[in-house]
Nucleic acid binder design. Structure first.
Lengths: 337, 337
DNA sequence: GAACACGATGTGACCGTGCACATCGAATTG
DNA sequence: CAATTCGATGTGCACGGTCACATCGTGTTC
């Protein structure tokens, strides 16, 4: 009855202790590598751990320390390249810091779905939050549920302290300026959903750059990030055809746009120039290869973690601004006029 | 000193009990809605819970029940549409069943990375595993670490009981037959990495269909799922140009392929027909719109959970075979000969 | 050489739940 | 009407770690 280890439960710290002939506390010290332990004692304990394939029980640790070391990700478009890449990088970075990540995907973007997502995350007692979703609505909900938790939003204007400053505005200005410099004067903007902070920022950048160059502004078209939408928007737009260039808020919509343009017998870039945003890996292989604004999604994810853990562990992090690059390929040219 | 609730710790079951004037066990019963509780008692407890914004402590529960209700996902290409969609659906389905999901992304596909990923998952005591990665290598590692855990692989030939039977083979045959029926006799296959079971299955389907129709087989080209690879493979292939059609193992590589073909002055589908696999949302907007094999990634994810929870909760699930569809668009035509 | 510091280790309580068992009153049964 | 059953509730312990504190032997200090 001394070796009642076959109870089905995994070996515990006390099982290790017994076999190593030490107290459970000594085992705990080995686990947290406490300085004052004799090397041979440590070795002996470690040996027993290996033999037993011992793994510390996370739940027990969490219970006593009340630290879950888990950060939550609230995602709305985890299917798209950008968010997916950021999440991947973020998860990796968190893991390297000994943190766990729980990614929860919203069922929809309505209030109830957001609430459900947040609740799921709170049930796990996440220590911080990364929001990759319509931030505006999430933060409202967040506030109404009056929860206070360190959080970071992946892409933003940089107004809040919680926000990672990827300069979406300057990225959008870069794209717009490129079109203006080529000689375009009638430029449309296919925007993203306006409750995504980055969509709003890109639109803002677009309008700012237009007015800075005295180019007449056009009303942005509000899209949903999909190629499908880009396609139908393109077809609508072509009925009038009072433009020579379009700046799309992401690459997928640009693809749909090009599809519509070409289907109507026009050519890109001869008749219409198109600029995208994101530089997804496929963009270089669109036909024509897409001129677009490159974002480093991986870096974004890593910085999100750095910023968040900085908040959690209370040392202030420095979110230096990431400036996106314009990648000029073949989808833009001088207007035919 | 009776109201020592401001200790910083969240309210516990006993805080609720005290305020409701019942024992902690009664509160626990309310939580797990035990049948024999007076409705008014239940209401009173619930009221206190709301007031306190009480949330059950998951760690404590896990500790005592030794059930984590967490399933782990080991992912290698979470950045791509297919895997990402499956993960998203899977996470949602798991959540609906009261399970938590932890997605761990492999740093690489080497042995050490896989081991690291598995360890991370085991540290959380996941109750089951979904593998979206080079399965062959994962299972070897899995075996060598001699861990036994219910697991499911998302896409496979259907040989194992653990495997979800999406019939990748018949999907590939569908695509190949389509090309043959159009009159093609010189068909290449751009395959995926061979330690992905689905890549191997698609290749198998391709070869089977060729031989069933007495069409001479060609050596498959082993790719890495990326558009970039498709592009370079296409350039290589075009130096010889002894083919009229290519079946690509996924849509991204097909895109790169088309890019290379068109760049060399040839046309798709006039000179070369191309078929993809997956039907990512962008495929309909490629130029030309891509003929491809459609997979229901969401359904895949949902079934993975159903199968896994069936194993965990011990009721045998029935993994009826999902048969993919061929979506004919504009990238295929009769050979010009 | 007594007082003390310190390194190495052990002891017991505690974290927030669920489980097994006990209790107690009311309804049912013979 | 006593015995039994059952519904509604309470009591105490266990889960597997960490923390605060105690213990003990040894070297250092004055």
């Amino acid at each position: 009855m001394a070796s009642d280890a076959q109870t089905g439960r995994a070996p515990s710290i006390r099982d290790v202790a017994r076999l190593a002939g030490v107290s459970h506390q000594t085992v705990s010290r080995v686990l947290n590598n406490h300085p004052s332990i004799r090397v041979e004692t440590k070795a002996r304990v470690q040996q027993v751990m290996d033999d037993l394939q011992y793994r510390p029980n996370r739940a027990a640790r969490v219970l006593v320390t009340s630290r879950t070391r888990t950060i939550g990700v609230l995602a709305a478009a985890a299917t798209q390249y950008g968010p997916a890449s950021s999440i991947q990088a973020l998860e990796k970075a968190a893991r390297a810091e000994g943190y766990f990540v729980n990614t929860t995907n919203l069922d929809g973007t309505d209030r109830a779905s957001i609430e459900r997502g947040l609740n799921h995350l709170l049930d796990q007692a996440v220590e911080g939050l990364v929001v990759i979703a319509p931030q505006v609505r999430v933060f409202e909900t967040f506030h109404d549920m009056n929860i206070s938790l360190p959080f970071v939003t992946l892409q933003s204007t940089g107004t809040t302290e919680h926000a990672l400053s990827v300069d979406q505005i300057s990225g959008a200005r870069l794209a717009t300026r490129h079109l203006i410099e080529l000689g375009h004067r009638s430029i449309y903007h296919l925007a993203g959903p306006q409750d995504w902070i980055e969509a709003e920022a890109r639109m803002h950048g677009f309008l700012t750059e237009l007015s800075a160059n005295d180019v007449p502004a056009t009303a942005p078209i509000l899209g949903d990030w999909t190629a499908e939408f880009g396609y139908y928007a393109g077809r609508e737009l072509l009925r009038v055809r009072d433009f020579t260039a379009i700046f799309s808020s992401n690459d997928q919509m640009a693809l749909g746009l090009i599809h519509a343009i070409r289907e109507s017998g026009l050519d890109v870039p001869r008749d219409v120039s198109v600029v995208g945003f994101d530089d997804i890996p496929e963009a270089a292989h669109f036909w024509p290869p897409l001129t677009t604004v490159q974002q480093d999604f991986g870096e974004l994810g890593r910085r999100a973690i750095a910023l968040l853990l900085g908040n959690i562990d209370d040392q202030g992090a420095s979110p230096a601004t990431l400036v996106p690059d314009l990648i000029v390929r073949k989808s833009t040219a001088r207007p035919a006029f």
